Amino acid sequence: MLSPQSTEIVRATLPAVGGAIGEITPLFYDKLFADRPELLRDLFNRGNQANGSQRQALAGAIAAFATALVEHPDTRPDAMLARIAHKHASLGITPDQYPLVQQHLFAAIAEVLGEAITPEVAAAWDEVYWLMANALIALEARLYEEAGAPDGGTLRPCRITGRLRETADVATFLVQPLDGRPLPAGRPGQYVSVQVELPDGARQIRQYSLSGRPDDALQFSVKRLAGDPAGEVSNHLHDHLNVGDTLLVSAPFGDVALDGGDAPVLLASAGIGCTPMIGMLAHLAATGSTRRVVAVHADRSESAHAFRTDLTQLVAKLPDAAAHVWYERPEAADWPADRTGLADLTGVEIPAGTVAYLCGPLPFMRAVRAQLLTAGVPAADIHYEVFGPDLWLGTAS
């Protein structure tokens, strides 16, 4: 891993670099996009750049990786690397892009920290960067090989063969590849990248969880995102894409996927975080699983709850499953008071040996994770998925 000399230098300079990372990452992106504007137009999420979340995620990943190298020099943080590699593979990141990132990242570090970046310090942090980059390149190469796209081109033209309205702001799309080749293999809980061409010519990419697996199509669900900036891809899909239209869809990726064991499983979601959980439930029901299943969901109200009927029906198909649902503003007059408000797992029986999967807003996942840890679920058995940049990366060990 990191050489002894570089380890000492990185340990000594980590506070300075970590403390300035909030200045370094915006400058890095400014330099990168000035050099390669097509990356912002056709690869990076413009909304996440505008609200700063992508910059926070990059800063967290760099700091977490460097800290791991210094504190655990004999162990590579594979869980963190796998998460990043899956996201990169879904976007089609290729090895030739890593030197470009190194060039502009180190230019930003030098500009922010000035004379503190001596040649020795620069060499040590360059070693950190290439340890991370080369590990990711190797992981991504394996993912591309498994997806049958060794050159990294996993996006395939697909035709929309079905569109279903789940709620006022959630739509489900079914797509089939135009080339007639078999559907790419995927695991319950994974996501696909979807690329659309927007009115200004930008080809923006977003990731959407597989919300089911019909025999002859890929199925993903999209929530219309409001706010400032609004979700330009989600709104485009809702407003302009219908049955018969085409779009580019990747093979499934994602490191958070339902395991194949027989241990009890807990699926906890909030809002549109229900999509991968419904995909997992559908798989369990379709395969006749006898596992103990605890499904937990929190939402604003009944009408906002996507896949509400599916949740009830899928749980009913499983021989040892139960659903626990909370609404902040229930619409039914007889909705129980103890299931009104935020989700609270303290009254839910968590079977011994449970493996948990979480998806939803970060405050929800942090609260659920804390309750699961208190209930005795080991941290290693609590897995999480986020939509967008992973602002929890490196902190949810």
Score class of each variant (00 low, 15 high):
259 D>N: 15
165 R>N: 14
141 A>D: 12
301 S>L: 02
181 R>I: 12
376 G>N: 05
364 F>P: 13
252 P>M: 09
56 Q>C: 05
61 A>D: 01
95 P>T: 00
108 A>L: 03
113 L>M: 08
117 I>R: 04
213 R>M: 15
122 A>I: 05
118 T>Y: 00
254 G>K: 03
387 F>W: 06
176 Q>C: 13
360 G>K: 04
132 M>F: 11
145 E>P: 07
329 R>P: 04
55 R>G: 13
261 G>V: 12
326 W>C: 02
138 A>W: 04
67 T>Y: 00
358 L>T: 06
119 P>V: 06
111 E>C: 01
346 T>G: 04
249 V>H: 10
91 L>E: 05
33 F>H: 07
393 L>I: 14
396 A>Q: 12
232 E>F: 13
116 A>F: 07
240 H>A: 13
230 A>Q: 12
347 G>N: 07
102 Q>I: 05
372 L>N: 07
170 V>Y: 04
334 D>M: 00
226 A>D: 15
359 C>S: 10
229 P>E: 11
36 R>S: 14
185 A>R: 11
170 V>N: 15
43 L>Q: 06
157 P>F: 03
368 V>F: 10
35 D>L: 08
274 C>N: 12
217 A>H: 09
37 P>W: 04
86 H>G: 05
229 P>W: 08
216 D>Y: 02
104 H>E: 01
314 L>C: 07
345 L>F: 06
300 R>A: 13
88 H>A: 03
288 G>K: 02
324 H>W: 07
175 V>F: 13
138 A>Q: 15
174 L>I: 10
114 G>K: 02
362 L>G: 09
45 N>K: 04
313 Q>M: 15
215 D>K: 13
208 Y>R: 09
376 G>V: 07
340 T>L: 07
161 T>R: 03
71 E>W: 00
149 A>N: 11
170 V>C: 15
221 S>V: 10
296 V>D: 01
232 E>H: 13
223 K>Y: 12
75 T>R: 14
187 R>S: 11
186 G>S: 07
30 D>N: 12
222 V>I: 13
33 F>G: 06
258 L>F: 11
33 F>K: 09
186 G>N: 01
282 A>T: 14
387 F>V: 05
87 K>M: 03
237 L>A: 04
299 D>Q: 01
285 A>I: 03
366 R>I: 06
67 T>P: 00
284 L>N: 05
328 E>D: 13
369 R>G: 15
358 L>S: 02
270 A>E: 06
162 G>A: 14
342 L>V: 08
68 A>M: 07
373 L>E: 11
246 T>H: 11
151 D>G: 14
114 G>Q: 01
151 D>L: 14
266 L>Y: 08
267 L>A: 06
279 G>W: 12
275 T>S: 10
